[in-house]
């Protein structure tokens, strides 16, 4: 068999989008990885675009939100804004797309969300809506889930950020409400600028490490554990000093 992905994708499409339009299976990936469905977007400025037009030219960070969210959406977008501002390169090295998943959101909602974050005229940022059918395609492909919540107009969902390069998904992170994984967020943004973070945080208590990744500065900093690597040589020197200095030889 070929890889599991085409089968997986096909099953998802059949399950989630029986009424999917024709170009549902015309992904635009080139390397054979997970290609995203090329959905049609309506942008905040009223123009239309295909996802491939945004993600084909430049790497793309894709996230979902809805305007009326009282939970994770606005804080997460604000963290993302902060991260992209720190890392730089938005608009020149990569593009950010915030896609509404609430049918109730209008173009005005998109614009007010952008304005609320101070992103109204920021290069590299797009806020968009799409049709319910197309939305199901893209959320299905990225594994994004939202269910209506108890309060009217609200959804239960986690924040999701997907990194797309050459039309292929290369990584994805989710952040549940009340949890903030800045490391993953910054690592994903840096990824699209060609940086790579090899250090993962480990769960639980940890003794001295070699390096740590500082999400704010993006630096991989030496940690105290590196000193332990010098300890054997220092121990040996110390022993020499004690042995040879104390018992000076008979001349």
């Amino acid at each position: 068999m070929r890889t599991a992905w085409p089968g997986l994708l096909l099953t998802l499409l059949l399950t989630l989008a029986p009424d999917a339009p024709g170009h549902a299976d015309t992904g635009f990936g080139i390397g054979g990885g997970q290609a995203l469905p090329d959905i049609r977007l309506e942008l905040g400025d009223g123009s239309n675009a295909l996802l491939s037009e945004l993600a084909g030219q430049q790497p793309l960070l894709l996230t979902f939100f809805y305007r009326r969210c009282t939970g994770v959406c606005t804080p997460f977008l604000s963290l993302l804004h902060d991260a992209t501002a720190r890392v730089g390169g938005a608009g020149s090295d990569y593009h950010i797309l915030a896609l509404s998943f609430d049918e109730a959101d209008t173009l005005q909602d998109l614009r007010s969300q952008a304005a609320a974050l101070g992103l109204a005229d920021t290069a590299g940022w797009s806020f968009a809506t799409t049709t319910p059918a197309q939305l199901r395609l893209i959320t299905g492909a990225l594994g994004f889930e939202a269910r209506p919540a108890a309060q009217p107009g609200q959804f239960d969902h986690a924040a999701l950020l997907a990194a797309v390069r050459q039309g292929q998904l290369i990584d994805r992170m989710t952040m549940a409400a009340g949890r903030s994984d800045l490391r993953r967020l910054h690592a994903l943004v840096r990824e699209l600028r060609g940086e790579f973070i090899p250090v993962l945080p480990r769960p639980g208590r940890m003794a001295l490490g070699c390096f740590r990744f500082d999400a704010r500065t993006g630096l991989i900093l030496p940690d105290w554990g590196l000193l332990l690597l010098a300890a054997p040589a220092l121990g040996s020197l110390g022993a020499l000093a004690l042995l040879f200095v104390r018992s000076g030889p008979p001349r």
Partner: peptide, 28 residues
């Protein structure tokens, strides 16, 4: 002597994990 000091550090870090559950950095 340097090699043996290094072995002692490794054993101490193992003991730390066994006694207190503090894990160590795999690269270190």
């Amino acid at each position: 002597i340097a090699a043996l000091v290094s072995a002692v550090i490794v054993i101490v870090l193992f003991a730390l994990e066994l006694l207190t559950g503090t894990s160590s950095d795999a690269l270190l």
